[in-house]
Amino acid sequence: MSMIQWMQRPWPWYVAGPLIGLTVPLLLVMGNKNLGVSSSLRQLCAACLPAKVPFFQYDWKKEVWQLFFVAGILAGGFIAGVLLQNPRPIQVNPRLIEEMKGYGVGEPFDVLPNSLFNWKMVFTLKGFIMMVVGGFLVGFGTRWAGGCTSGHSIMGLSNLQWPSLVATICFMAGGFFMANVVLPVILKI
């Protein structure tokens, strides 16, 4: 196996998980920063359209490191997803592939099912729900909850904060309900 092929391979959970965990002390040691991604969305609101909404009238420049962090995530996505793209289809449970075939989603050739996430689909009811409504729920829900998977489930749990455990349990409960009960209906549209 060549060097490039080795670098294109996806990482197992026991490599990726501890590395994600290490970003917690990394950011703390760099400057007392708490890992969290969703607050960058609030920053974008405060920076772009603060207009008289008290929630966005704060000194966002103090927390500007978050914008640098998410810009880095974008660049990291390019490095790993484009430069070192895994040429092989993602290996998922065959049961899931069978189920999704039933909804006409197709095979998992790519990270996302291209049949659902594309520009034409944005203007269909199904695609609108998947991309626009789904995204809205992510932004609205994380801010109401005060954090997302990184802020609550990684950072909060790492610091043994029980409210972050409550949030994480609700993330999972909401996800289980949506994926098993509602999403099949959406996918049949």
């Binding site: 996505g77 809205f136 992510v138 609205f140």
Partner: peptide, 30 residues
């Protein structure tokens, strides 16, 4: 909000398959 917002985020996570971090990473990945 950790309960109500948490549930709403869970819905969004299962639909889009992405939490906020991955949204940025996916855009970078093309």
């Amino acid at each position: 909000g950790q309960i109500f917002g948490g549930l709403l985020f869970g819905f969004g996570w299962a639909i889009t398959g992405a939490c906020p971090g991955p949204l940025f990473a996916l855009i970078g990945a093309g």
